[in-house]
Write a protein that binds this DNA or RNA. Structure first.
Lengths: 330, 330
DNA sequence: TTATCAACAACAATCGATTGCGCAAACCAT
DNA sequence: ATGGTTTGCGCAATCGATTGTTGTTGATAA
């Protein structure tokens, strides 16, 4: 019923707690007969070591924090899934902290990490975060961190991301190679402040340039939420410079565009050649056949978690840029 | 840089750690002058109490576990969001344990809870769980638990759920009241082993009965995953007893039906009158106007978390059935 | 002047597990 | 038989914060 401790076992056998501890950890200093009876008794009593006490002794908390700007969209549930798998396999607890895309909450979350003394942190920045001031405390304490997906490019940290520039380039190339005669390519992107937006935009531009296409006026747009994307797309489609091809940066944008297309009774496969970057869910359930460059939250979370584990095991801070694969799915 | 402890502060002021502790907790036994200088110093040094040590002393862990069968579908991200909000506000950490709809993993997750000595648990059962044997240990230890959504009806525990019977009844009534002349109503349900499936099925039956409709042969189907629902719907639509109305039990089923409808070039609003139970996301992004009975993961998570907090604060185990509201959205 | 009572602060034990050190008994070899 | 090594186990400190008990001041009242 109540919790069994090492002391209980020691008292029962009339030996010292330290001997029990050693026996259970299979230390050679304990005789085999005594060791056997200790193990037998502790199993019989259902002994479970007190994790809090172990952590206190070891000077750690056993907690890994995952700071993300959002939990309930396409991307992050898959990140959570991947990270959770790895962390539990390694005996860590995963603490999920949601910033809700608010800088202040992200800062508070960083403070929670300090207070709890977490052993490592995975961070995806929120839209409002343009610097890492609020993580300085954690960094100076030498706590292993991995920034992933929504990162700050020019920071001297450990970063995992989607190779957005190249992925966007590949997407556009695919679109143009399969539709030789289209020229007017539009692009709808997310929040300009995000590094991932800048990456993808620059890949988009490079691809058009390499195919000898000048991005026409009014063909590049930005939308913050899926509702904005819906409006933006309607505006784009109603304009005089109606595009023949469309690049969509993310699932959020895609969601809005699909809704708009339904309302406009427009096919995103035939009347407008579309290429998206996506985790795959929306292209799979929508009416159109939309090819996409796969941006897997699961893969990204897995890679980030592995990099964090490596730092924890090797006891040294790792820095640099890491990337995941982005296959083209049709 | 490295962590500041109470001992550091005590040594610096050449006083005893216990005095520092009392001063920081505003105990009257410490003089105001000394207290002020202790507080000032501790703030200057950026002192943060060690949560692990406090938990050890208090004999608790500060952890609340959330055991769920899945993280990456429609429902649970919203549950996570709600629970996370409440738990962090109350100073608890949220530990998310994913069972992946596998009984063995659910059992292992329960064992993790024992090992970590969590202070409270929120559980949504997986499909394979027909009994609560694996939670007996936790229950007998008197650990506050709240079962939510996928629950075991006839268990003497604290349960929060969607009033599925009534919600299904309301959905069907709405469908029939708005489409006076339809008679052949089909229903596609989830896994038969789940209590939520049985609830909704029985509400479906009662509503038909009350409207003087006999459920025709071959109009009730079960599907485990969205792909199954897709197949089932195609089969249903191709059959000789093609339905005029359709009840869909969940978002997972709805996803499959929408995909099938796209392939069949069939409107779920005009050619087939559809009513669904849903969190709202899919009805919002699909081409059809599908009315639904709202089953909010956020509301459910919030209610469950509140019930758990109540037990923790009042230090007593609560039992009984609780429900959330299920408005009809059109 | 002495008794009394605050006020204040130190001591030490506690939560549970771990570990360096030391000590005794048993063993081996010369 | 004696010196030296191995085996097996207990003691006590440690991690950081908390708290009951004790002890020392100083001030006030009798």
């Amino acid at each position: 019923m109540s919790k069994v401790t090492i002391k209980d076992i020691a008292k029962y056998l009339d030996i010292h707690p330290s001997t029990v501890s050693r026996a259970l950890r299979d230390h050679p200093d304990v005789g085999k007969a005594l060791k056997a009876s200790i193990v037998e008794l502790s199993e019989r009593l259902g002994y479970q070591p007190n994790v809090t006490a172990i952590n206190l002794r070891k000077g750690r908390s056993g907690i890994i924090a995952l700071i993300i700007p959002e939990v309930a969209n396409y991307f992050f549930p898959n990140v959570i899934k991947a990270v959770e798998e790895i962390m539990h396999a390694e005996g860590y607890q995963l603490l999920i902290l949601n910033s809700n895309d608010i800088y202040l909450r992200e800062k508070q979350n960083a403070e929670i990490c300090v207070r709890l003394g977490v052993d490592g942190i995975l961070v995806s920045l929120c839209k409002e975060s343009s610097e890492l001031e609020h993580f300085k405390e954690l960094i100076s304490r030498g706590i292993p961190m991995v920034f992933f997906d929504k990162i700050k490019q020019d920071s001297d940290t450990c970063k995992v991301s989607i190779p957005g520039e190249q992925a966007a380039y590949d997407g556009i190339s695919y679109l143009l190679n399969n539709n030789k005669n289209i020229k007017r390519i539009a692009g709808i992107f997310g929040d300009e402040r995000l590094s991932i937006t800048q990456d993808r935009l620059s890949g988009f531009r490079r691809a058009l340039f390499d195919h000898g296409i000048k991005p026409g006026p009014g063909l590049i747009h930005f939308a913050y939420r899926s509702e904005d994307a819906e409006e933006v797309f309607k505006y784009l489609w109603a304009g005089k410079n109606r595009p023949e091809g469309l690049f969509i940066m993310s699932d959020e944008i895609l969601q809005g565009v699909i809704k708009a297309a339904y309302e406009l009774r427009l096919s995103l496969s035939r009347e407008l050649k579309t290429i998206s970057m996506s985790d795959g869910f929306l292209p799979n359930i929508c009416q159109f056949k939309i090819p996409y460059v796969k941006t897997s939250g699961f893969d990204l979370g897995k890679k980030a978690a592995q990099l964090l584990m490596q730092q924890l095991k090797e006891q040294k801070i790792l820095k640099g840029n890491f990337f995941i694969e982005t296959p083209l799915v049709d």
